[in-house]
């Protein structure tokens, strides 16, 4: 379980101005939930992810994961970054076995594990390649395999597929959901926090959607549509309603967003 209790985070910008990136956010996320965090740029969703990862400390409030206060990064909370994070000086397979190696896993075991996850993301044929020889989509697959091979219980994905083309993005959704469902079936839990500003992406992926604006949590609703979801799932009446709700939050709906946000807050 992930519990944020009145969490806030301030930054001091280079010009000396204080920016309130997160403002008094409280939310509880159940084990095994797939949660999407949505909102316009600069709304604080990436900051929240970094707080859960332990890469940032809250200015106020507390972040708890599995009953423990988060103090710094830990392999139980894996992260896939927006930009390319794969180590360019390690071959693909050595990237995937990096986490297990940190945990002191034996060489043969971690190589087998890395090979297995490379097969799962469809990259077994480039195990010995250097990252510079891979496309952007393949690098994202490596990053996903790195985190899953490390067996993290909480996965934090910060707009991981934002820079990819349409087809690659959808292939990676399938890879991600496939790995998530497989590991959830095996361990009974694997919580995912997925930051995006792509409305359709979060409708296809999420069990639950959190909407942020200006550092505040402004909406929180479940997505009950059955899995596996396809492009047709987006045509369900519920999904269409969710879609309008999200578009309104992002200021892309013709109807006054304030009215809908107000209704959600009640």
């Amino acid at each position: 379980m992930i519990a944020l209790d009145h969490v806030s985070r301030r930054f001091r910008r280079a010009d000396g101005q204080i920016v309130q990136a997160l403002d008094d956010v409280s939310v509880t996320i159940a084990p095994g939930e797939f949660v999407c965090l949505v909102g316009p740029s600069g709304c604080g969703k990436s900051t929240l992810l970094q707080l859960v990862a332990g890469l940032l400390e809250p200015s106020g409030g507390s972040v708890n994961v599995a009953g423990q206060v988060v103090r710094g990064p830990a392999p139980e909370r894996g992260m896939v970054f927006q930009r390319d994070s794969v180590f360019p000086w390690l071959r693909v397979i050595d990237n995937v076995q990096y986490g297990p190696r940190c945990r002191g896993m034996k060489r043969a075991a971690r190589l087998a594990l890395a090979q297995q996850y490379l097969e799962r993301v469809g990259l077994a044929h480039v195990a010995r390649a250097w990252p510079r020889e891979l496309s952007g989509g393949m690098l994202k697959r490596v990053a996903v395999a790195m985190v899953f091979a490390n067996g993290a219980e909480v996965l934090l994905l910060d707009e991981p597929f934002g820079a990819l083309d349409y087809v690659t993005r959808h292939q990676l959704h399938d890879v991600l959901l496939d790995l998530w469902e497989e590991s959830r079936a095996r361990t009974g839990r694997r919580t995912v926090l997925f930051v995006t500003h792509d409305v359709d992406e979060c409708l296809v992926l999420a069990d639950r959607i959190l909407v942020f604006r200006a550092g505040r949590l402004v909406d929180d609703f479940p997505v009950a549509a059955p899995r596996p979801r396809t492009a047709d799932s987006l045509l369900l009446a519920d999904m269409v309603a969710h879609r309008h709700r999200l578009l309104a939050h992002l200021g892309l709906e013709r109807a006054a967003p304030r009215a809908i946000a107000g209704a959600a807050a009640q």
């Binding site: 332990g54 890469l55 990064p73 992260m79 990096y98 986490g99 940190c102 934090l156």
Partner: peptide, 27 residues
């Protein structure tokens, strides 16, 4: 910074961070 953050979230400690990230990255 992203390589440092990545290594830390994968479980690398300070020594491993310097040996496996900082040293190759500055080469």
């Amino acid at each position: 910074q992203i390589h440092i953050d990545n290594a830390r979230t994968l479980g690398a400690g300070q020594w491993r961070l310097y040996g496996s990230v900082v040293l190759p990255a500055i080469l």
